[in-house]
Amino acid sequence: MSLNNDLKSSQNCENIQQLIPEYAFGLTSLEETKLVEANLAACPQAAADLADYRRLQEEMREEVPQIEPPVGLEAKLMAAIAVPAAPAERINIRPQSPAPHMPSAAPIATPVTPVAVPKPRRNIAWLAAAAAILALVITNIFWFTQVNELAERQRELEIAMHTPDDTAFVLTSTANLRWVRLPPSQQEADSNAFLMWDAASEIGLMYARAFPQLEPGMTYQLWLTRSDVRVSAGTFRIDEDGNGALLFHSAQPIDEFTWARITAEPEEGSEQPSENVVVIGEL
């Protein structure tokens, strides 16, 4: 009797093992999927095969050719999460039953309705206009929630430049949105900055994050580089968390500049940047 049971069990495991490749790749029927899942624990070799296939799949996902995401994607995402979300599903979370065609690798089986984000799909004028307005609203919400001192900085800048009517950061359309991240110049540093501007204007917005605190009498200064000429875009201070912002105006379209950097300088600002570069990046 026991021999019979062992034989049955052995044959059953052979059958399960045969199904593992297709099970791993989500190709088994619902019935086959149930069969595998019901017997996997009792078939160590099948379980080991499945583990191999899972690792192989991980490599297949990781080894796709790497492509840089679109420049504006980061800004859209940050803007999307800065918008107070519609009541999100706060689920007490454990991996749920996978879809039959995608076995246990599926970590989230329940579809989630994403936060509304402007999604450029088709070249329809009204959609573009609506997206532009939405992008303007949400990006401004994001920045203003991130930077408490922004309004004060803007007033300071307006006074300094004597052009109060021009110093508004306005997106004329999403197509004009430019966005770059300036990474830290030192590999081990956390500092970074984001530069956003409208290609159709000379107004830009910079947000600095996790900058080191400076000695008294020092400040940070933003520089834009064009044909080896470095132009100051203004100075700014940071708060106790190392965050700061600068709304700036350029005499030339910002699109014409090729690099941006932020340096530590004496409080009154410098004519040329020092070597003390905190972040630097290509525009």
């Binding site: 995401p69 599903e89 689920i91 999604k119």
Partner: peptide, 25 residues
């Protein structure tokens, strides 16, 4: 375009359901 949308959707799922991730798994 579709890849950008899917990347957004993926990150927004994570934003809403970050606690789903089980480091033991």
């Amino acid at each position: 375009t579709l890849a950008e949308e899917v990347t957004q959707d993926t990150f927004l799922k994570v934003w809403r359901q970050a606690a789903h991730w089980d480091p033991d798994k």
